[in-house]
Design a protein around this nucleic acid. Structure first.
Lengths: 200, 200
DNA sequence: TGTTCATGTTGGCAGTGTCAACATCGCATG
DNA sequence: CATGCGATGTTGACACTGCCAACATGAACA
């Protein structure tokens, strides 16, 4: 039952903050967002019911921490996916596919990231990830287009697909495993490149 | 303080079911999804704390009722928007714009509709709205394309845009009022028709 | 007129978020 | 080495919640 690296296994936990986050993500995955309980997190981390309050002033603060974790990882996944690609459109595609991949790999995080309603949520949460997308979109559409509209358009597609998948709105066969999801994402982009988007 | 149409203003309420739903939507709009409380709904409806249980066996059942209401209205909004249009692409656009309009007009409903995680949620919740979209999308892309992929692609765009707006992820100026939102939706479609989608 | 049954009420239980008061221990300072 | 302080964890409490069981009311039908 190693409690992890440093800190005696006695009174103090050692890395309770991370342990609570981990427990919360597990709990949400098991029971759903609405049934998350700080006290249950504490139990799973092996501490008393009020211990998490030393690290998170409020339940919402815990969720904000999860969201921040998610945005950070999403940003890095986007960067990694676009690495080495030069054509703006290829880069945008790559980000989009990575976005959807992130969604199925970290469904709890994505859900929490876009649940807002969180009080005390820092204004610029997720800004890096957003700006990366906006710049990529602007590079595709050129300088004549309102960047905010370009960003909204480029963001909506992978975001919508991700949310629909998380909500179980996409038939199960089409999202059976990670490869299937990636294929779906690519074909969604292809459709908007082709018959859905192209000239009629 | 007329309690509405029939039913004496005494022991029995008359239309408690609808009153509870109304109160729940208000409450979520004010305090957020997570802080919805059946007891507070009961208070606002002017009944005792357990009265809602005569109409909803569980809190989730109340949310399912709200979602059903939303899907029904979304379906009818889509139908109305496409009425009189013949070109499949125009019809798909019209549905999409109506989808986003619905989102800003009924943010609570849309949020609840796509929160899933609801236990005892009927399998085919929202099927009408979905099938309408799928048929419209298939009419655009033709018979050679997997209908599930076509539906996913056509659905992702308005859904993603709606969710981003509800989450406050789109700059406030761009979604200041209903007209601005509609203009944004149209320009998102135009971008995927043009520089984002078209041949480079 | 009398009974039934949907609807509403009261009271209670276990669980929750949050707070205040207290306990323990690592660490820097003498 | 002693000491005391601040970060971290504990205990106990409060108001609130979802849900349940037992009871009350009254509208509609026999």
């Amino acid at each position: 039952m190693g409690r992890s690296k440093k800190a005696s296994d006695g009174y103090h936990h050692g890395d309770l903050r991370a342990a609570v986050i981990r427990a919360a993500v597990e709990l949400i995955a098991e029971r759903g967002h609405a049934k998350l309980s700080l006290r249950e997190c504490a139990r799973r981390a092996g501490v008393s019911h009020a211990a998490p309050y030393r690290h998170f002033p409020t339940k919402d603060a815990l969720l904000v921490a999860i969201a921040a974790e998610g945005f950070d990882e999403l940003y890095r996944a986007g960067l990694a996916a676009m690495e080495g690609l030069d054509d703006p459109r290829d880069r945008l595609d790559a980000y989009g596919v990575a976005y959807v991949r992130f969604a199925v790999q970290h469904p709890v995080h994505l859900r929490v990231m876009f649940t807002a309603e969180l009080e005390g949520c820092p204004e610029d949460l997720g800004r890096e990830a957003f700006e990366l997308l906006e710049h990529t979109a602007v590079a595709v559409v050129g300088p004549g287009v309102d960047p905010r509209a370009a960003a909204a358009a480029a963001w909506s597609l992978p975001h919508g697909l991700s949310m629909l998948i998380l909500d179980g709105r996409i038939p199960a066969e089409v999202v059976a495993d990670e490869a299937a999801v990636e294929a779906l994402a690519r074909s969604v982009y292809a459709l908007w490149r082709g018959p859905l988007g192209g000239a009629g």
